[in-house]
């Protein structure tokens, strides 16, 4: 499965190489044109079979949140900082992969036995956490790692439950998988696909990609938070697993263009594809950067609901992913 393969690859913001190469490998042999830019965005053109006259761009980001080594201690432990928004409370007792050679590491902590009762009540601060790669000292660590080495979570994508997947980086490899499926299928309307970089550090790749491609209409295909979990009131759940793709009306980066918002609803209703609204206005997406490109672009967002986003292990439902492909396809057919 495409998503499984993509989500297992490391691709922390600024180091999306492995993901980009895996996508390019998929593109080979299909009648597609592509190029990369100086930030590392992968821009793909599908000529399509329709007579579409509008320039439509779909965007999904290749990068994921992760960590970066910021200094190496005498003992060989690695100090680090998060790349992108991570709740540091999720980090302790997790496995990671360090550097392009993906050497294993663990994030350890002071054993509970050694903590005073009052310490046990407090979450671990970033400065108390270290990555341990098993090196005996700084010299040995420096054979594998330097300041600036990227670190990604190490969670293998695993099917479980009723059609669910557990894994890392679904935000936004899920979107990448949707775009790839639409690119690789025969026929369908023409569109540009932007596999963007550095979304998690400020929507940076999309801004440049949109400047280059100059679309008239754009849709960011994302993975978004689902909080349909115990102890969360229904009105604060944002999205729910299994209810189909989530259509955004607004987030911190964009007020979705009303024409696109309505177009997505109509496309879903017409093709009888289940969908839901993303009932939350926080968070930012590539669509925000795209909308403000040059003279302005009509932009929207559709997202696969995903629990425990920005953590080492998120959960999505395969049916939602498939319905997202269908909804985006239906919208493309009506728009392009």
């Amino acid at each position: 499965m495409l998503l499984e393969k993509l989500s297992n690859l490391p691709g922390v913001s600024g180091n999306e190489k492995a993901v980009r190469e895996a996508i390019i490998e998929q593109l080979q042999g299909h009648a597609l044109e592509w190029q990369t830019d100086t930030l590392g965005n992968l821009l793909v053109r599908k000529k399509g079979s329709g007579s579409g006259s509008r320039r439509v761009m779909l965007a999904a980001h290749m990068d994921e949140v992760g960590l970066m080594v910021t200094s190496i201690e005498k003992s060989g432990h690695l100090k680090f900082r998060p790349v992108g928004g991570i709740d540091s409370r999720v980090l302790v007792s997790k496995r990671v992969r360090v550097g392009d050679d993906r050497i294993p590491g663990v994030i350890g902590s002071k054993a509970i036995h050694l903590q005073k009762p009052e310490e046990r009540l407090k979450p671990f601060e970033l400065d108390q956490l270290y990555i341990d790669i098993g090196a005996r000292n700084k010299d040995e660590a420096e054979k594998h790692v330097q300041i600036g080495t990227y670190v990604s979570f190490d969670t293998a994508c695993t099917p479980f439950g009723d059609g669910c997947l557990r894994g890392k980086a679904f935000d936004d490899r899920a979107g990448c998988a949707v775009l790839l499926e639409l690119l690789l299928e025969k026929g369908g309307p023409a569109f540009d696909a932007a596999f963007t970089v550095q979304e998690e550090v400020g929507l940076r790749g999309a801004r440049v990609a949109s400047y280059t491609l100059q679309p008239q209409y754009a849709l960011a295909v994302e993975a978004t938070a689902a909080a349909d979990t115990p102890d969360t009131e229904k009105e604060r759940s944002a999205t729910m697993l299994g209810s189909g793709p989530a259509i955004s009306f607004m987030d911190r980066s964009i007020i979705v263009n009303r024409e696109i918002f309505k177009g997505l609803i109509e496309a879903g209703e017409k093709a009888k594809i289940p969908f839901q609204f993303r009932r939350f206005t926080g968070g930012g997406t590539d669509a925000g950067a795209i909308a403000l490109s040059r003279e302005g672009v009509k932009a929207g967002v559709v997202a696969v609901p995903c629990r425990y986003i920005h953590s080492p292990c998120s959960v999505l439902k395969k049916s939602d992913l498939q319905h997202t492909v269908s909804l985006v396809r239906a919208w493309l057919e009506a728009t392009a």
Binding site: D37, L39, M68, P82, V83, G202, R204, R207, Y211
Partner: peptide, 18 residues
């Protein structure tokens, strides 16, 4: 790790990327 701190931050995303 990606902090908007210096001129390099805006230069990189100017136009088609620098």
């Amino acid at each position: 790790t990606g902090v908007p701190g210096t001129d390099a931050w805006v230069i990189q995303v100017s136009r088609e990327g620098i």
